[in-house]
Simulated scan of single mutants.
Amino acid sequence: MGSGEGRFCRILGAEGIAATGLEPTPTLRATARNRDPEGCYVDGRAEALPFADASFDLVISYLTLIDIDGIDQAIAEMARVLAPGGSLLIANLNGFSTAGEWRRQMDGSPYFRLDHYLEPRTEWVSWRGISIRNWHRPMQSYMQLLIGAGLRLAHFEEPRPSGGGKHAERFARVPYFHIMEWVKA
């Protein structure tokens, strides 16, 4: 889902795993194809996947769930294209990090302010000339949809960062992202 410029597909390919990248943004899809001419990059959106039922043994959503407006359709579609016994791997920004922001106390020391965690909302973020609307959703939104799609949670982790200096220190104070594996019965 949302393969972007294809980095993760190239990593999988280097490990001998044939990957199909789905990307709705023409510029990112073209970049992926230029960087990986032998790769398979498909135009499409997670809310209406252009694949047959049970097409994949493995579906990966790597930092994309926060970008999808129709999350209920997207999760249902991911479950639909997943073969029985297959795994859905998700790496997503943690709701704690998307519901808050770093601030400074009077003495200049940083603290993290969390507010309105249970209220889904969007905000625009920009980097490297790209602007995208990110969603904050509480964890229960994802969990209820994944369970409702008939998937079983097999693994959950909020990994502690390593390396990265001051950024790793901040991400160790507030969980930045999580990793989940869901299995289709």
Rank of each mutant, 00 (worst) to 15 (best):
P110C: 04
S109E: 09
L151E: 01
S126Y: 09
I71F: 02
R45T: 14
N94A: 09
I90V: 15
S61Q: 09
E15R: 15
T20I: 14
V183I: 15
R121E: 08
D69H: 10
S141T: 15
L88A: 10
D43G: 07
V42W: 06
E47G: 10
E123I: 06
T122I: 06
G100L: 00
L28Q: 15
G164D: 05
L146T: 00
G21C: 05
I60M: 14
M143H: 02
G6D: 04
Y142F: 08
F112N: 07
L114C: 12
A30S: 09
D53K: 07
E123L: 11
P175D: 00
L153W: 02
G16S: 13
I75A: 05
I179N: 00
E101V: 03
K166D: 13
L22Q: 05
R35E: 07
E15D: 13
R7I: 11
S61M: 11
L93D: 05
P138R: 04
I66E: 02
R103C: 07
A19Y: 08
K166F: 13
G163K: 06
R152V: 04
Y62G: 11
R170C: 01
H155I: 08
H116D: 14
R133Q: 15
E23W: 01
R35N: 09
A83G: 01
Y117K: 06
A185P: 10
A52H: 01
V183T: 11
S3C: 14
D36Y: 10
A99D: 03
E47M: 05
L63Y: 01
P50H: 08
R160A: 10
A185S: 09
A76W: 05
A14G: 15
E158G: 06
D57A: 14
I71M: 08
P26R: 14
S126W: 04
A19H: 03
F112G: 09
V81T: 08
R10F: 14
G44W: 10
M143E: 01
R121H: 15
Y62I: 08
A154W: 07
S3W: 03
F8G: 02
P175L: 08
G39D: 05
A18G: 05
N92F: 00
T31C: 04
Q105M: 10
R29T: 03
A149F: 03
L93S: 04
T31I: 08
D67M: 12
I90C: 00
W124D: 12
A19T: 12
P50E: 09
R121T: 04
F56I: 12
A18P: 03
S97N: 05
Y62E: 12
A99M: 04
M106G: 13
A30E: 15
A48S: 12
G150D: 10
D107C: 01
L89A: 12
L28M: 15
I66G: 08
L12D: 13
M139N: 07
E157R: 07
T98S: 13
W124Q: 09
M1W: 06
M1H: 04
N134F: 09
Y176P: 00
